[in-house]
Design a protein around this nucleic acid. Structure first.
Length: 595
RNA sequence: GGGGGUGUAGCUCAGUUGGUUAGAGCACGUGCCUGUCACGCACGGGGCCGAGGGUUCGAGUCCCUUCACUCCCGCCA
C-alpha cells in the first residue's frame, strides 16, 4: 500500500462509505466553527471536505495549521446528509471524518493566496509560479496543454507522421529574427545559435527520405514580447511532407485543427472548410494578413471617389492626387447612433496615431441621397451612390474614411475594424473563424532601404512556370506560401519549399546574396538539395497560441508553465544571470562593462 | 528604441480640491461559535504610499527624474 494515500482528493463517493482511507494534499480552505472544523483538502485531482470535532485530542493543534500546509489525513468516509451535500464538488456527497493526521510539508505565510479568483500582479505570480500554478484556472490550463499535445502526437502518428528530434545547438542564420547565441568552449571565438525553428533540419529530413515528419519543436527568437508572443522561446507543431502540393498540406492541417478544436472546445467552428484568402485580398478587405473573420466588417477601396469633380473633400483629394489611397468601413444601420459614437471612433483613431477617421451617414431627403455628418456635405448625391455601389451600403448606413499612404491606411482601417466591430457588438466571440491566407509575395521592398528582400521564407517555392520566371519583376512573383489565421491570431505559416538549387541561387541573387554567400550561409541545405531532393513542403502551427485559443485566454503566460516576463527574465530561476569569471575564461569571453 | 497604463499593509484595492492620526476585504494573531462549503462574530498586529529630487506652511495627492510590472508600435523570414 502507498504510504501517503489510498485515494486521491477527487475520487471518493458514497460507494466508499464507511471505508477507512487516507488522503494527502494541500489545505485549500478551512472553516473553523470552534468546536467543529471543516477542511477542504486539495490535490491535482480534486477537493475533499474533511471534518474534525473538538472531542478529538489534536483538535486545538489542527485548528492552527495554515492554508497550503501539506498533510496526510487518515479517516473514515461518511455519507453527508441531504442538506449538507455540495453539488459543486465531485466528492460533494461524502466527507472524511479525521481520525489522525500528519504534517508532510509546512508553509510560510503565503505571498499570494491560492484559494482565490483574484488577479495578481505578474511580478508576484512569476516569482512564486509554483504557488500560482496551484490555482485552479491556470492549473487546468496547463493540464489542457498536456492533453492537447498528447492528442496532437497521437493524431500525427495516425496520419503516418514520424516524430524526430533536431539539434538545439545549431548555426546562426542570417535571415529572420535575432538569434540566441551560445559560445563554444572547444571552438574559441565561435558560437552556436539556438534554432529559430527547425527549418533547415526538417527539409534535410525530407531529403533523407523520411517522407512525413513532425515534432513539438522548441523555437528560440530573441525578439520583444507581446501578449500572444513569449519572449525567448515557444513551441511549434513543426511538420513537413514529401511529394506534396499545397492542397495536401491543407488537407492534413485542416483535419487536425478541426478534430482538435472540436475535442477540446465547445465553441463553434464557423467554417469547417477553411476559406482561402489571397494575401492581396486580405490586405485590401481587412488591412492585415491576419484577419479576424468573426468580424463582418469589410474595408472598401474608395480612392477613385476622390478624383471626382463632384466631391469637394479637399484634404483627401489632395492626398489622393499625391498618391495616397482612401479606404473606408461601412457600418450597417447606424444613422441613429449618437454623435458620441462617431466622435469616439475618430478620437480613438487619432490616439492610435492616425490623422483620424472622417465619417458621414447616408440619408435620404425626399428622393435625394445625402451625406449627414461633419464631412457629408462634401459628397454629391452621385458620388455617394457610387460609394454605395462599391460597398453595398444602404440608406441609414455610415461610412468611416481614412486616407494616407497605403500601409498607414491598411493599419488604421484594420484596427478600426476591430474597434468598430467591438463597439457595435457585432462580433461573435463565442466561435472560431479559421482561414488560410495564400499567395504571399516572394519578395517585398524594404521600406527604409528600398532593397528587395524575402518577404517570408527564402526557401519557399515560387509560383508559376519555374523556367519562365521573370526575375526582373521580383515583386510580382508569388510564392507557395501560406498562413493559418484564427480569430485574428496568426497560428502558423508554411510553404512548399524550393528544392531546386539553381532556382534557389537565382532567388537569393535577387535579394542580394551571391552564390558564394549562399554556399557559405546555407551550405547544409544547398548541398543536400544537390543530391536528389524530393519536392516537399510543410507548416508549423504555434502550440502556445492554439492552446490560448482553446482555453479562451488573452495572454500566452496563462498557458505557459514557466514563462519569462516581458524583459525576457525568469523571476523564479533568476535568469539570465551573471556567470563566474572562470566560466567566461573557459569560453574565451570577456564582458565589456557599460558605463 | 518609442508611446500608453499601473505601482498605497503579505495579497487585491479605495483614498475627494493638496489639509491634521492613510482605510476596506482577504491573509495572519487572540478569543467566541457543532454543519460550513467565499462559514459567522469580536478584538489585534501589520505601511519608506516603488525610489530620488522639487514646489508648498503642509504632498499618497502637484511637478521633474528614475525603477519595476504590463499593453501597444517598431521588431518577430
Amino acid at each position: 500500500m502507498n504510504k501517503y494515500r489510498t485515494h486521491t482528493c477527487g475520487e471518493l463517493t458514497v460507494k466508499d462509505k464507511d471505508n477507512n482511507i487516507s488522503l494527502s494534499g494541500w489545505i485549500n480552505k478551512k472553516r473553523d466553527h470552534g468546536n467543529l472544523l471543516f477542511l477542504d483538502l486539495r490535490d491535482n485531482y480534486g477537493l475533499t471536505q474533511c471534518v474534525i470535532e473538538n472531542n478529538h485530542q489534536n483538535f486545538k493543534e489542527f485548528e492552527k495549521l495554515p492554508l497550503e500546509t501539506v498533510i496526510k489525513i487518515n479517516g473514515k468516509v461518511l455519507e453527508r446528509n441531504k442538506e449538507t451535500v455540495n453539488k459543486d464538488l465531485k466528492t460533494g456527497e461524502i466527507e472524511i471524518s479525521i481520525i489522525s493526521y500528519e504534517v508532510l510539508g509546512k508553509t510560510q505565510e503565503l505571498p499570494l493566496p491560492v484559494f482565490s479568483d483574484q488577479e495578481y500582479s505578474e511580478e508576484i505570480r512569476l516569482k512564486y509560479r509554483f504557488l500560482d500554478l496551484r490555482r485552479k484556472k491556470i492549473h487546468q490550463n496547463i493540464i489542457l496543454r498536456s492533453k492537447v499535445i498528447s492528442f496532437i502526437r497521437s493524431e500525427m502518428q495516425k496520419y503516418g507522421f514520424l516524430e524526430f528530434q533536431t539539434p538545439i545547438l545549431t548555426s546562426s542564420s542570417p535571415e529572420g529574427a535575432r538569434d540566441f547565441l551560445v559560445p563554444s568552449r572547444l571552438n574559441p571565438g565561435k558560437f552556436y545559435a539556438l534554432p529559430q525553428a527547425p527549418q533547415q533540419f526538417k527539409q534535410l529530413i525530407m531529403v533523407s527520405g523520411f517522407d512525413k515528419y513532425f515534432q513539438i519543436a522548441p523555437c528560440f527568437r530573441d525578439e520583444d514580447a507581446r501578449a500572444d508572443r513569449s519572449p525567448g522561446e515557444f513551441y511549434q507543431l513543426d511538420l513537413e511532407m514529401s511529394f506534396v502540393e499545397q492542397e495536401d498540406i491543407f488537407a492534413v492541417v485542416e483535419k487536425l485543427m478541426i478534430n482538435m478544436f472540436k475535442k477540446f472546445s465547445n465553441k463553434k467552428i464557423i467554417y469547417e472548410k477553411f476559406p482561402r484568402i489571397t494575401y492581396k485580398d486580405s490586405m485590401l478587405k481587412y488591412g492585415t494578413d491576419k484577419p479576424d473573420l468573426r468580424n463582418p466588417l469589410i474595408i472598401n477601396e474608395f480612392t477613385e471617389i476622390f478624383k471626382r469633380d463632384d466631391v469637394g473633400f479637399d484634404i483627401f483629394k489632395k492626398l489622393v492626387k499625391n498618391g495616397s489611397v482612401a479606404r473606408g468601413i461601412i457600418t450597417k444601420n447606424t444613422k441613429d447612433k449618437p454623435r458620441s459614437f462617431f466622435d469616439g471612433i475618430d478620437k480613438w483613431a487619432k490616439e492610435e496615431g492616425a490623422s483620424g477617421l472622417a465619417y458621414f451617414t447616408i440619408e435620404e431627403e425626399g428622393s435625394e441621397i445625402k451625406g449627414k455628418g461633419p464631412v457629408g456635405k462634401f459628397f454629391s448625391s452621385d458620388s455617394i451612390k457610387e460609394m454605395m455601389k462599391i460597398s453595398n451600403a444602404e440608406i441609414g448606413d455610415s461610412i468611416f474614411l481614412a486616407c494616407g499612404d497605403i500601409s498607414e491606411v491598411q493599419k488604421i482601417t484594420s484596427q478600426a475594424r476591430d474597434k468598430i466591430g467591438h463597439e457595435l457588438n457585432i462580433i461573435n466571440y463565442d466561435c472560431f473563424a479559421f482561414c488560410w491566407i495564400v499567395d504571399y509575395p516572394m519578395f517585398e521592398e524594404d521600406e527604409k532601404t528600398k532593397k528587395i528582400i524575402f518577404s517570408h521564407n527564402p526557401f519557399s517555392m515560387p509560383q508559376g512556370d519555374i523556367k519562365k520566371l521573370d526575375m526582373s519583376k521580383p515583386l510580382e512573383i508569388k510564392a507557395y506560401q501560406y498562413d493559418i489565421v484564427c480569430n485574428g491570431i496568426e497560428l502558423s505559416s508554411g510553404a512548399i519549399r524550393n528544392h531546386i538549387p539553381e532556382l534557389m541561387y537565382k532567388l537569393f541573387s535577387v535579394a542580394g546574396y551571391d552564390k558564394k554567400m549562399v554556399d557559405e550561409k546555407f551550405s547544409g541545405m544547398i548541398n543536400a538539395l544537390s543530391y536528389g531532393a524530393p519536392p516537399h513542403g510543410g507548416i508549423a502551427p504555434g502550440i502556445d497560441r492554439i492552446i490560448m485559443l482553446i482555453a479562451g485566454e488573452k495572454n500566452i503566460r496563462e498557458v505557459t508553465m514557466f514563462p519569462m516576463n516581458q524583459n525576457a527574465q525568469d523571476l523564479l530561476m533568476n535568469a539570465p544571470s551573471e556567470v563566474d569569471q572562470q566560466q567566461l575564461k573557459e569560453l574565451n569571453l570577456s564582458i565589456k562593462k557599460n558605463k
